[in-house]
């Protein structure tokens, strides 16, 4: 297979074949990135997992007492939320540099720009896969795993990834045009982390319910956390995340149609 994008024709490459090329190229580049993380390091990407586990174990020790929740219940709750949050956080903060990081390639060869978008998503998905292994282990050890929830929770992760995809494309375009964007996104995400029920439980924050449930990040996390821990999952979570995906795709498609030929001049 040669990428049709390599060829220049008046009609341009067809959309499905360009999408296929972007997917496979994004995946291969993400694999390369992951291999490079393993290079010269004993744990490789598992260092990130170790970091997450250390945070979880440490925080749980004090916070479980603070919130009067049994340690094992709290640990399972925190770790499940943290795994999804780490994925969302990393994807969104790397998204704004997706095109900047690929400047040399964008300027010199004609490749589908979406491959850089998929690269970010797939790279973080691979890291999350490492985290998930440790998470399942922790849930089994603490006796908090709800086996019937595993399949729906993992299926919902796909929905989360689909909702994030247009956001990556939009942030990548903004980031390459305005160099403040990567900093803004990282700061904003730090801020959001404390407003989102990751370290604390939504039901414990009395009087803030309306605010909490209007936070889309709550629903992104709930889609995975609720089924896995056997909690109730409101249909609103599907509606919010599905809505983000649909609206995001429309905005990203319009933005891309307008900007795809300009990006090369911005990098």
């Amino acid at each position: 297979m040669t990428f049709p994008g390599m060829a220049v024709s008046k009609a341009g490459p067809s959309a499905p074949s360009e999408l296929r090329a972007a997917l496979s190229l994004g995946w291969l580049m993400a694999l390369h990135d992951t291999r490079m993380r393993y290079r010269g390091s004993i744990l490789g990407p598992l260092w990130l997992t170790a970091n997450l586990a250390a945070t979880g174990l440490g925080v749980s020790f004090m916070y479980a007492a603070l919130f009067h929740i049994p340690y094992q219940t709290y640990l399972a709750y925190l770790m499940t939320g943290l795994v999804v949050w780490a994925f969302v956080f990393q994807v969104l903060s790397e998204a704004s540099t997706a095109f900047i990081a690929a400047a040399g390639v964008i300027r010199n060869v004609r490749l589908p720009l979406l491959s850089h978008v998929f690269r970010v998503l797939f790279r973080q998905a691979i890291i999350m896969a490492h985290n998930l292994l440790v998470l399942i282990l922790i849930l089994v050890l603490t006796g908090q795993l709800h086996p019937w929830g595993i399949v729906p929770a993992f299926l919902n992760l796909f929905l989360v990834a689909i909702a994030l995809l247009p956001a990556i494309a939009i942030l990548a375009m903004l980031g390459v045009r305005f160099r403040d964007v990567p900093q803004i996104v990282t700061n904003l995400l730090q801020f959001i982390m404390f407003l989102t029920p990751i370290f604390w439980r939504a039901e414990d924050a009395s009087g803030r319910g309306a605010f909490i449930y209007s936070n889309p990040f709550y629903h992104l996390i709930a889609l995975f956390r609720q089924p896995l821990l056997g909690g109730p999952l409101a249909w609103q979570s599907y509606a919010v995340v599905g809505g983000i995906a649909v609206v995001g795709l429309v905005i990203a498609a319009l933005a891309f149609r307008w900007g795809r030929d300009r990006i090369v001049f911005w990098v």
């Binding site: 040669t2 994008g5 390599m6 060829a7 220049v8 024709s9 008046k10 390369h32 490079m36 690929a102 040399g104 390639v105 964008i106 300027r107 010199n108 060869v109 004609r110 030929d261 090369v264 001049f265």
Partner: peptide, 29 residues
């Protein structure tokens, strides 16, 4: 090469496979 899109006018390469040899620093790790 199709990296820049012309502001006006057009280029016809009849779907050929184009290979570029521009910048030596391309995407090395």
């Amino acid at each position: 090469a199709g990296i820049y899109k012309p502001t006006s006018g057009h280029i016809d390469s009849s779907g050929a496979v184009i290979s570029t040899f521009f910048d030596v620093g391309l995407g090395l790790d």
